[in-house]
Design a protein around this nucleic acid. Structure first.
Lengths: 365, 365
DNA sequence: CAGACTTGCGCAATCGTTTGTGCTGCGGAT
DNA sequence: ATCCGCAGCACAAACGATTGCGCAAGTCTG
């Protein structure tokens, strides 16, 4: 049955009535496009076009633009994010998955991510999986249900495929459809080793990372390669590995004690990270060895404590902020389809090297 | 002009045609309610009610519920966040404003916030203002335009009033409409001072925080009060203050050197935070004083470095994670109007005390 | 002065959900 | 046989913004 004129009339009036009531908006502030338009005596269309900077394209008179913009400002108009998202199918939001947000690594990367995203008016959701498999499985779905347009995985290996662009910061097995931002481990190794080499060190000990850490492999491969080219022989007896998931300096302390027990002489230690370097220094001091006089120590990361510990740590600095920034910018490019994935699978970030007091010329005795 | 039957027919068919095309959804995955309903031969209404657990209320037959749920699962139906938000005016999202995310303080608080929020299916946006006034002004608005239902300000003083519930973690001047989560500074001071008191310390030096830091005032007030009750005299000559915005241990180093120059004897220092305590230790060592034998040092915060530095730092631990959790849970209660603001203006969180190696019995000489 | 452009703007459909109200059978009470 | 009530579902109007077309004046061309 088609409604007749009478009914339509009535309905239309009811509608008007409803529209007249002050709509309580999300956030409780501001007015809707409709109210703004009514206030101006213009159509929704026109106002919308002005607000979207599409005025030229649709030839809105400059005077009208002025009026609209002023009214928008004075009425405190803010477009409703839901309505806009619903219509445009874009949320200007990305998801970030990290192992643990309270850790310095993730937080530094996030800082870079945030800067890059906010510049483009994007926001981000953060979730931390804490290495729990169920969360690793659930979070991407949760993020997608929040309509994120892309995902950044920080030091995290995503399980299944994801229907939006994904950028990984370290820690992702190279995989189809995932752009990885990683440190240039070769340059990093070259920094650390040639520094020691130039100081005269030849018998160098190494503390590798835990096996579960994704950087362990690539960093060690780079180390081997650089030693090769420098002519440094890697003595298997001088290689140890961090064990256990304990954070902080403890694992490095343990590894160094093991190293010392092997009674093989070495004049320097290259550590997997600063935390373990600090542990190494403690162990060396306990063994009566003075850093850097007897043994030089090189760290990795440049965490804040690296500068404050005595002796201050010579270390390879990971530009985490920059890695985050790059990740975010790449993700945006992928979302906007300005770049496609095939040509580049990973972007290398160049580390810095910070020379402090924990390394010195090899002693002559 | 009313459309006649003919036109309506045509329009309706056009409509059907459009609806038939596979709608590319946000996130590129799943089907819409409409498709799900069509698939089931049911109305949108019914399916929606089942999906929203409102089946009882509207007497949907159990068999129907079953069918709906199964179809939803098999078709991978996910409600569109925009449409739902638009309709229900709720985003299940809050905003978090921090000074700097890469700093340990904010990151730890965020960790607690995240846990509490995700439990309730809320997500959060993070923005860091870096003490820039323009951002402090802009971010609340930006967050509101993203329809956040509440805001958590971490160590940050919001400028204007905000039309959604606000919870502050430290750093907020007590203000109407803002619930503040803060450390119980009195207990904290009692921990630190009675520890030193019991070790025999009477001549105690203090390093206060920078004036811009919001905790400086309340922590000092508590210190004065506790000294009073313990009968410890505060010698103005033994009180210094951190200067400058430099992060890390430098300000503490400088403050301690100043203290030493005053040539007033003291057997212990109570520092504003761990970072400055580390600086203090460095300065003391340089002056030939051994910690803790000659001077005991107490920190505040319990940052990771506190445990690794030598000597390991005795310090007051701020339960940042718990403060974040409490903030988030309170905010949710405010949003749901389960609690109102008037009765409680601030929630005190009790600190812990960690005894390590930087404090010792006062030496007899 | 008629037709062809251009200028400046409005109509109305659409995005996907939610929800107040209504409508249809069917069984039991009278 | 009539009426009532309830079980079980559907209608259709929002929510607020975007956008392909379309249309009326005004300007220009010849």
């Amino acid at each position: 049955m088609l409604p007749n004129k009478e009914e339509l009339k009535i309905r239309s009036e009811k509608t008007k009535l409803r529209r007249a009531r002050p709509a309580k908006q999300v956030g409780g502030h501001g007015v809707s496009l409709r109210e703004l338009a009514a206030h101006l005596g213009l159509s929704l269309t026109t106002v919308s076009r002005v607000m979207n900077h599409a005025a030229k394209e649709y030839r809105i008179a400059p005077a009208t633009q002025q009026r609209v913009l002023e009214a928008a400002a004075s009425l405190n108009y803010h477009p409703n994010a839901f309505a806009r998202g619903l219509r445009k199918k874009r949320s200007s939001t990305v998801g970030v998955i990290v192992p643990e947000i309270s850790e310095g690594y993730a937080a530094s990367v996030l800082s870079g991510i945030e800067d890059a995203l906010l510049q483009e008016k994007f926001f981000y959701f953060v979730v931390s999986h804490r290495h729990r498999a169920d969360l690793l499985d659930e979070y991407p779905r949760l993020l997608l249900s929040r309509a994120v347009e892309g995902i950044i995985a920080v030091d995290t290996r995503l399980l299944g495929p994801v229907p939006v662009p994904v950028v990984a910061v370290s820690g992702h097995r190279r995989k189809n459809g995932v752009l990885t931002i990683e440190l240039d481990h070769l340059t990093a190794a070259r920094y650390a080793l040639s520094h020691l080499f130039d100081l005269g060190h030849r018998k160098i000990a190494f503390i590798k990372g835990q096996t579960f850490s994704s950087d362990t492999r690539s960093r060690w491969d780079a180390t081997v390669k650089v030693c090769d080219s420098l002519g440094i022989r890697i003595d298997p007896q001088l290689v140890t590995q961090l064990e256990g998931i304990a954070p902080g300096s403890e694992p490095g302390y343990v590894a160094t004690r093991e190293l010392l027990q092997r009674e093989r002489r070495f004049s320097a230690i290259v550590c997997f990270n600063d935390a373990s370097a600090i542990g190494a220094i403690t162990a060396l001091h306990e063994a009566g060895l003075v850093v850097p006089h007897d043994v030089s120590v090189v760290g990795f990361d440049d965490i804040p404590a690296a500068a404050t510990i005595r002796p201050a740590l010579t270390t390879v600095r990971q530009p985490l902020y920059e890695m985050g920034r790059t990740a975010a910018m790449s993700l945006l490019s992928l979302i906007r389809e300005e770049i496609s994935l095939s040509p580049l699978r990973s972007i290398l970030i160049t580390p810095d090297f910070v020379t402090r007091q924990s390394t010195a010329i090899v002693s002559k005795d």
